[in-house]
Amino acid sequence: MPIQEILLNIFFYAFALVALGGGIAVAVSRNIVRSAFALLAVLFAVAAMYGFMRADFILVAQVLIYVGGILVLIIFAVMLTHKITDVRLSNESAPGPAAIFACLCLFFALAAVALSYRWERAAPSREATVPSREGQPPIRLELSMTQGDGRTGVTPGGTVLDGFVRCAVAARGQGGEAQARFRLERGVLKESVWQWSEFRTAEARFRAAEPGTRRAEGSFDRLPPGPYRWSARIEDFEGETAWVAFGSQGEGAAADFVSERGLTKSIGSAFMGPYLLPFELVSVLLLAALVGAAYLARKEVHRQG
């Protein structure tokens, strides 16, 4: 395993341990203020998990609202509802074997489902056939995209976060030594028409994946935000095939994928688009909660006479 993967794993497991340890402290600590500060560790570790998932806006929202708002409220409530001059505030709990047993069962059930279900990772691929050369059967090609380090498939027309995409071509019925060449085109809007121009190329050797199929992957990283199209072709010692595009070709054709930096932009347009009504409703609800909380927490005023 390359050292980068090891680093990523170390960071992930460190933050997962922080989250678990904090969660256990919240659940069993005998001091309620320590529970509250353990919640801080959990919230930050969960924020780090959003970082691993490349959800930068959610990371920031988590820290801003949970740590800056909810946690401060909780600590305030702890201090307002206890005689706080004593540092060691007790926090009774009634652990019973039934509770522990039930929770463990639930955990194992959830974990078993998560680990045993075969989550769909690949995106739909495009099939194409390259016309045969003299005396050879036609080659069937399968083109597919994954994002980042190849963990998640990208659907045609989908988005790629942080400009790292891996394009793959699988050739069936192709014998002998060969290599694939990938071409990436970037779209620029000129007079309300997308103009496509070659942006980068990459080469990769074919590897045998299963009998009769050979697979090559080309990766492109640090792509600036914008729409892209890509195509592939096979080159061997006898010559080369024509370019096979992933999507439709031509001047007005749509992008195969769009590269975006972080989630901020798409979340912003979603709020102003399909999620406009929920967004407004939530703002009304927040106002109602604000008024309600102020009403509940106010001091009772007893009028004389």
Binding site: F37, V60, V63, L64, L71, V72, I84
Partner: peptide, 27 residues
């Protein structure tokens, strides 16, 4: 960062928690 100013406002909230922590734990 694309979320620059939000990030700054967010991490600054750790200061509040730290101050509460200091004040409470001093006894």
């Amino acid at each position: 960062m694309d979320v620059g100013i939000l990030y700054i406002l967010a991490v600054s909230s750790a200061v509040v928690i730290g101050i509460l922590m200091a004040g409470w734990s001093s006894g």
